[in-house]
Design a protein around this nucleic acid. Sequence first.
DNA 1: TATTGTTATACTCTATAACTATA
DNA 2: TATAGTTATAGAGTATAACAATA
Lengths: 166, 166
Amino acid sequence: MTKPGLDAAELGAYFALMDVSSLLQHAIEQQLRSAGELTNVQFKILMRLLEASDGQLRMTDLADSLVVSRSGLTYQAGLLEKAGLITRTPSPDDERSTTLGLTAAGRERIAAVLPGHVDVVRQLLLDPLTRDDLGALADLLTRVRDHMRAAPPRSAAQRARKRADS
Amino acid sequence: MTKPGLDAAELGAYFALMDVSSLLQHAIEQQLRSAGELTNVQFKILMRLLEASDGQLRMTDLADSLVVSRSGLTYQAGLLEKAGLITRTPSPDDERSTTLGLTAAGRERIAAVLPGHVDVVRQLLLDPLTRDDLGALADLLTRVRDHMRAAPPRSAAQRARKRADS
DNA sequence: TATTGTTATACTCTATAACTATA
DNA sequence: TATAGTTATAGAGTATAACAATA
């Protein structure tokens, strides 16, 4: 009678995951806003650029990576460019693509925000975990993420739907 | 030089957590919209009410539990009430409080949406995990959540700030 | 005086669809 | 013909602050 098809362990993992992520997300959002006038999404964009091997990323790849629509990313990238934190230049190999890159100001902004950001992550997420716990958690979640990413990304769904319509 | 204060294991757990939750959240959002005209937040409200021992919850408690502002919850509760899925009645013991309750239609809506919802959670989150993995994940995340919830909730932060201002 | 909930307001973000340009 | 990115549009959701009612 309206019993969910998930048992206690499954439900526990699922709910705990969602609770933890939203609690953490809100705390992060708050810190980023007060420390550096950044949205969580904007911060993630900057971080991905910082991580990228050559410091450059294509729009579509970034959109899929951040689980955002391409138009949404265009909006955010516009804000970041206006703020002088990133650059947008047409890709040399494919003229259709736009390549994002970090500016010096972008790097500085990250440096300004990161310490406080790390503190929040430490206090909320990392503190209650032992070193072993941490490894176990990273392993489990990485496997889940890889599994999830095996499905076609957001940007492909639109193309597929469009094709089916015609 | 601008190195984050987190090592590879910490960063891995943190990023994997955020990636997994946003991937899952987007998939859920999509399913709920197409299956039953519900937002993720609205679905969560209904689920908490279903879970609640007596099927009733106070606004402030629910807001804290869902990590949403009270005004935001008022907005969502208004929509759900207008849709006939929940009831809002003044609490008997404290006239200031509003008690939320599920209607029969609310229960039906949950029943209609839940199977598809469970499928999504299964396919994306649960499938790649063994039974042991699941228990470990639930244990780790539950501990983190309890730790996070030990801090004062959202609704208390406003009161504290207000007091400090005066 | 503190707390509960609502409201008024303003704003941020997001996505869909249409469009341009390049492959 | 398909893909990359932008834009125009429109809507949904959120939070802050002020307010009313109750404790």
